[in-house]
Design a binder for these strands. Structure first.
Lengths: 230, 230
DNA sequence: GTGCTGACAAGAGCATTGCTCTCGTTTGTG
DNA sequence: CACAAACGAGAGCAATGCTCTTGTCAGCAC
């Protein structure tokens, strides 16, 4: 045992990383549909069959890229949030939303991979769940801070009777310390945020919205108000 | 000229329709990624090269399916709207939203085709634009009716200064008879609607929201209030 | 040190795909 | 009636994901 981890294991990690890097490059350049195992192998100077020692199938490679994408998005959002950690909750909320938008515009194909149509079959592998939750947790955190902070949270109208139980369940799962209407509104806002980003990204706003950035900022603000921030 | 349109032309239309039908079947069964020209031809008892007389490429077939999907969605929404044409504007708004959700759940792969990641390259062919606008126009109509109707429209706060000009432009393009803040809010709500639907469809709500239908109805109602309906 | 085992790379190969080209045949029309 | 356009069939090309077999080399136990 000359090295801590074994030279073999280290080499394996390096090759795995190189494969993912090259795959990410092709993903960014051409999109998920054109990501080809053979092309990745070719670019790396290996033969295609050798690649299967590291990823048992193309879908497994894609899954790895999906997890990385969630992480990258989460990290971006968290960093942007830290930069305005002292600001008022509504400003922090908007900052997180804008970070999500920025990342998405900068990584359109990776966005499509995680929030567009599920590319492989339909399976969202269990492994992606924790990574996927990061942005959501961040938004919850902002609202919780506002709730506990000096200004408090705007009181939201009660949810309709038919939704009372469900809202309670959502709150219990996501943020037991927040009022049920706030928790429900948070989930709605979370989905709506990605609706806005997706529409801009996939061209639905072409010929409709020109000044995308102020438009989005305004919408994000409204979203924040919808969960009780002010 | 024995027939009105020529037997040949009619045959062509029939074959074209048969191809699209079979393609739609495969799309619904397996998704856009697995839609194969050869498989379609095989199922129709023709040879693959013959199919190219009708669609010059796989992308062209997909484009045809996209237009049909937009039309199908638009028709669904319009029908649902007509069924509640006498109701209050907010009810009609919710009905249209629910029709969009219903159609999307019933045609997940077609939804993915038009609102998911752009499957081929990036091109949204010009031909799809009018079909794509139908749901939007329907929503605009509901709000316009409310604006002109007895109850009127809730007054919306003015948009921030940085967005004033853009909101005016959007209103001029989309609905010159509506106040600019309403027009801007409409675009936002439009995007958010598809954010909600997409999140449910693509599994983002798994383990988060259980009672999807009342949850969506509530969210749709909020969306309607956001554009001034009541 | 010396073997042995398991990880690895390389190559050939299979089924499938989108698409092109060529060659007869049919068909509607000037 | 003749002719051109439309059509179907088949072969073929380059590429893909994936499998199987074969040779090789590194790292471990003895």
């Amino acid at each position: 045992m000359s090295t801590v981890q074994g030279a073999r294991a280290r080499a394996r990690l390096e090759v795995t990383a190189a494969i993912k890097d090259e795959a990410r490059r092709q993903l960014a350049a051409e999109g998920a549909a054109k990501l080809s195992l053979r092309a990745v192998a070719r670019e790396l100077g290996m033969v295609s069959s050798a690649l299967y020692r590291y990823f048992p199938s193309r879908d497994d490679l894609l899954t790895a890229l999906i997890i990385d994408a969630y992480d990258s998005l989460g990290q971006s959002a968290e960093r942007s949030h830290e930069a305005v950690a002292e600001a008022a909750p509504l400003e922090r909320w908007v900052a997180v939303c804008e970070a999500v938008r920025r990342w998405s515009l900068d990584h359109p194909h990776e966005y499509a991979l995680i929030y567009g149509s599920p590319v492989p079959g339909y399976v969202a592998p269990q492994a992606t769940v924790p990574a996927a939750a990061r942005v959501g947790l961040l938004l919850i955190g902002v609202v919780r801070d506002a709730h506990d902070g000096p200004g408090g949270l705007e009181e939201l109208p009660a949810v309709p009777e038919e939704l009372r139980a469900e809202a309670d369940r959502i709150a219990a799962d996501l943020a037991p310390d927040l009022p049920a209407p706030v928790a429900a509104a948070l989930v709605v806002a979370w989905a709506q945020l990605f609706g806005l980003v997706g529409f801009e990204l996939f061209g639905q706003f072409n010929r409709v919205v020109e000044e995308r950035e102020p438009f989005f900022r305004h919408a994000a603000r409204q979203l924040g108000r919808g969960v009780g921030l002010h």
